[in-house]
Structures are given as C-alpha cells and as structure tokens.
Design a protein around this nucleic acid. Structure first.
Lengths: 335, 335
DNA sequence: CTGTGTCATGTAACCGCTTACATCATCTAT
DNA sequence: ATAGATGATGTAAGCGGTTACATGACACAG
C-alpha cells in the first residue's frame, strides 16, 4: 500500500480513501491511485484491514466429526447464504469431544465475526457460549434450548415419534431402532422419541454411530435375532442406507419383510431402491437460515440493538417412499 | 492482552512469550501470566497474530459453482488433511465465471497462506497465477498443465477413453455421450476422449452441465432418438445417476437395454441400483494430497527452497458394476 | 487585504500481537 | 572486588491497513 501511495504521489490515507470510496477525493488523485494500483497489481491485505476495523466478513462453523451427506448439504446451504451476503465461510469439522470443540472455537477468535456451533455434546454448548465471549454464536446442537441463546434446533423427539407412528400405521408391530452413539444428544432424543411412541410394543434397540457402516452392522445384528423385527427406524438416513444394503445382501426384502425409515432426507434417500421413507429436515434450508440469523446477530451486535435470542424449532415431516410401503401396496408396486 | 499483562504485573512481551512457549520465562512469571489468562478468559486474537507473523494457518479453496457429491468428497478429503496439519480451511464456492473466480481469489489475500484453485475456465488459470502474487497456488483445474505451476490433474482424456473402451468391450455399439457444459475444460477433454475412443462407431452427443437434473434431461433426449443408443457414457456420475433414473421411469432396463457408465465414483455410485460402473478417481484422496502439497509449498516458500512445481496426473481406473454388465452376465445377475 | 469556510490531503495514532534488541539483576571466574 | 556471562524482562518498532484530526490551499465575503 505504501508503494501504491508513493507511486501515486499521495499518502496512504488517500489510497485508503480511494479504495474504500470513503471521504472525499479529487478525481485526479483518485485516478492516479487507481492507476498505481493497477500497475502494481496491488491487492489490499485482508488481515490488516480486519485488524483495524475489527470486522472480517467471515463466519465460522464448528462441526462434529461425522461426515456424511447431512453435513455436506448443510454446508452447501450455508455457503450459498454466506456468498449471497458476501461473507466467507470457514469450516472446522471433525471435532469429537467437547474439549476438541472448544479448542476449535478458541482458534476462531479474531478470525470470524461470529460462529455457528453444531455440537452434539451437551457440555460444549454451555462452554461455547462462555468462551465465545462477545462473539455472536448460533447454536444448532440439538440440545435443550437455553433461554437467551440464539438457536435453531430440530424437533428430534417429535420426528422420531412421527417415524414410529408411521411404521405402526402401516401395520408394523416389531419395530427396532438403530440409534446414534450414546452421549450424542440428537441420538438420545431420537431414541427417547422412539421409546415414547412405541405404544406398548416392545423396544428393540441396537447401537450405531450415524455412519453408513454402523447401520450395516446394526442391521446384521437385527437379522440374527430369534424374532426378527418387521420394521426399523434408523436414527439417520446414512444408517438406514447401510441397513438397506445389509438386508439386500441377506436376501431380506424391503419393505415386504422389513420396513425401513430414516431421518434427515439426505439427497441419497430418494435415489435408493427401494427409495427410503424418511423424516425430512430441509437441511440446506436450515444451513441457509442459520447463516442468515448469524449475520443478523453480527449486525445487531454492532448497533447494540435488541438481540435475536429466539430458539427456532424445525419440525421434520414424513416423506413416504417405497421402503415402508404397506405390504399390500408393496406387492402392488412390485408388479 | 494488555489487561493480562497488567494483571500479571508483566509486560505484553512476557505474556506473548508465555503463550507461545518461545524465549525464556521464569516459572513464577509463567504462572502469574497463566493465572491472569485464566481469570480474564483471555483468548489471543488471531487476526493480530497473523498480521505480525504474516502466517495464518489457513488455506483457501476456490471452487466452481457446481455442487454435488464430487465436491463434497473433495472438501472432505481436504478438511481431513488440513485438520491433520492444524490448518483451517476457507472454502469459497459457486464461482461461475473467470471474473467471479478472480474476485474470490483477490478477497483471499491476507486471509490465507496459500490456495487451491479449481476452475474449469481456462482463462482463470493464468489469471490465478498472476493475481495470487507471491502466494503459493496449487491448480486443480483440469486444464492443460502449465510448466512450473504446481498442479494436480485428472487424466480426463484417458479416463474417457477407458470408459468407452469398456463399453465397446462389453459389446455395445451405439455409444452416446452426455457431456458437461461446453467451455468447461474437463467436459471438453472428456468429450474429446470419447470421440477418440469411438473407433469408428458414430458419435452421439447430448449436452449436460454435470448436474443430476441435466443427466435426466439428456437421457430423455436419448430415448427419443429414432435409433436408440445401447450405451451411455456420462461425463460424471451425477449425470449418470440422472440418466439411470430417467431410464427407470421410462421402463428402459439397464444394463440389458442400455448400459451406463459414469466418471468420478462418488459415494452414491455404488449405492444405485443397478450399481453404477464408473471411472474411479479417488476424490477424497486427491483433496488430501492437494492440501498436503499446498502446505509443502507454503513451507518451501518460507525456506526459499526449491519449489514443488510438479504436475501430478491422476489416472482414473475402471470400476465395473452392474450398470454395464454384459447382456449375458446381466441376465445371470438378475436371476 | 484579511478573515473564514470548504475541500483535498497529509500526519499519526491505533487495531492486538510478535520479536529484535536493550536493560538489568545475578552469578561466576579471576 | 570487578569484568563478563547468563538469564529474565521490558521497550518499542513493526505487520498493513483505517481514520480522527491537523494542515494547507483556495475562493469568497467583508
């Protein structure tokens, strides 16, 4: 920048003014500066600007360590929104423990204007708020809503209930659940919803960790049971996909022998054969919404306006596809 | 930081030393500083540090506007590698034109230590090198290799040839190609490979844009042709998926009536039914490798060592699945 | 001719941290 | 007792911008 100033025979202040279009500048000066910028191929140094203005047009996203279609979709939605607002997105994923998540949050300070934290670990939630200090944070961790904290959460309990009720409505009685890892709030909540909706039917629960592979393993366990279930509610779509594959390999027909329902409605769900029935959460839309609310928070922070502390709740909706078709219609579809 | 220094009765320099573990500090001082940091919940301001050290442990990634499984996978691989090296990743996607891409590159200055540019627009390539200035850049744009420019590229031509040869080897004769958007280097190169490998068979080309929807549309066009092709080489997997769906809807059997082969081997390819034969590119691995080479470049830049200017070429390999099974074995598989 | 208001531009402090160098207190060797 | 070595700490100059304020030139009114 000094070089530019020198070449244009002006002070750095003038260069800054020209480049930012702030303040007044004579046309002659402006032109000289622009020429110099051009000649020198000068590009302002972002970090320096951000230090002065304490804004950096970047928002951080902290993700857990699972990486599947869900997060891809989420990031896609966020990226779109961020770009629409001229912000950059810095994503830090693969955080397993609360501690790890905290480290990531800390390392974001001074790098982002605000952050979105998805942490399925309860502890981290509080800590996040604590450590973020004066930085706006939007929680999307699926935990219980904390008053006064901006958040977007999915109605995991309600969604799980909806899934189970659908299975019951289509005539299934022995309904198993492939749950996510214990300790993961979303997994726990969905499992609770499952249990609550069973309505007298016996619970059959196997462990998974939200990965496709774990769904496959869980399904194998299910098949080995003396009294085989006639339906499976997987805590997310990727596990449902794994289960579907396991059933196919074992020659067990879906939905005739066993129905499968997932959760999320990732893009792949509609492409599976049988197409996967699932509880749809408009993932990309949630990502977009999250970014937009966070941007709102950042701006509000500047104006010291009333803060947006609402806790939005997204209710999943049932998307019926082939994997849970009732026996009769299943036969019909096959023909 | 000043507050911490004050509270610990030391100078900011000592605080900095303690926090970075550099230089020598007495245990007493160290402890007082750490206590103060704790009390004040102090977290160093990243931007400031980066301004001083002119390093920011962040690498930028510029992506084109398509968003599909390919890029998700790529980012996944990059993210893994970045995390392994303690770097952050800042992704800027959805850049359509060369101009847009350039703006993105510029806005990265002072924010990243180096960047990976994937731009299917030829012009941008040169400009990228030009504008990046002294910042290390790794090209993964699929264009022609430029001497002295670090790059990783996919052997698109060879991959396309392999795909077509496979179709011919399995007995197909009327082989169509669903190509990517004109002007996109990768699309052009794959189309060229297709044409080169036809070996006398008549070319049948329909336009797509790498999206699943475009693959669906293209397949519909193919079906409407008077002499229907008996095989399709889609320029990427997502279009192949779209085509597969279109065929299914039209009641056209794959692979019996028409074979389909894709390119990339995105995770979804193996899950389709029929499972999609494709030219595998180890996407995540390429992402990982890209990040690692870039990190190498960044470090080399510091030591003024010999630069890594190699142009790595990745050769896709054929992964045979059901969608191109030869007529006889296809029947066999069905049974 | 002088006072004053305008406008364009320059000066310099500051953003929060790093780091070369200066300083100072101890300790050791002579 | 003194010089020199050693080690801990402080001072201050950046890093590359932004911006409040000072300055200077000029035009115009009195």
């Amino acid at each position: 920048m000094r070089d530019v100033a020198e070449r244009a025979q002006v002070s750095v202040a003038s260069v800054s003014r020209v480049l930012n279009g702030l303040g007044v500048t004579s046309d002659a000066t402006r032109q000289r500066v622009l020429d110099a910028v051009e000649d020198l191929r000068y590009v302002p140094h972002f970090g320096a600007r951000s230090l002065s203005t304490s804004k950096n047009d970047t928002i951080g996203v902290i993700l857990p360590d699972l990486f599947g279609e869900f997060f891809s979709e989420l990031i896609r939605g966020m990226d779109l929104a961020a770009r629409a607002h001229g912000k950059h997105l810095i994503v830090s994923s693969s955080h397993d423990g609360a501690e790890d998540t905290l480290a990531a949050i800390r390392s974001m300070r001074g790098r982002v204007d605000g952050m979105i934290v998805l942490s399925p670990h309860l502890g981290a939630t509080n800590l996040a708020s604590e450590f973020a200090g004066r930085m706006p944070v939007l929680l999307m961790n699926g935990g219980t809503a904390e008053a006064g904290r901006a958040a977007i959460m999915i109605d995991n309990h309600g969604g799980a209930v909806g899934a189970v009720e659908h299975l019951i409505a289509t005539g299934r009685r022995r309904i198993a659940h492939i749950r996510g890892a214990a300790g993961n709030i979303e997994a726990d909540t969905r499992a609770a919803g499952y249990a609550a909706a069973l309505d007298g039917h016996a619970p059959i629960i196997v462990e998974g960790d939200f990965s496709q592979a774990s769904g496959h393993r869980a399904a194998t366990q299910l098949l080995a049971m003396p009294e085989r279930p006639d339906a499976v509610f997987a805590a997310n779509d990727m596990m449902a996909v794994g289960a579907l594959l396991a059933f196919q390999e074992a020659g067990v027909r879906c939905p005739e022998d066993i129905a499968v329902i997932g959760f999320d409605d990732v893009p792949i769900a509609a492409l599976m054969r049988p197409a996967l029935t699932t509880m749809r959460v408009n993932i990309a839309e949630i990502g977009r919404r999250g970014v937009e609310r966070l941007i709102g928070l950042v701006q509000a922070g500047q104006h010291a306006d009333a803060q947006d502390t609402a806790c939005e709740i997204v209710r999943p909706i049932l998307v019926e596809r082939q994997s849970t078709a009732a026996a009769s219609s299943a036969r019909f579809n096959k023909g």
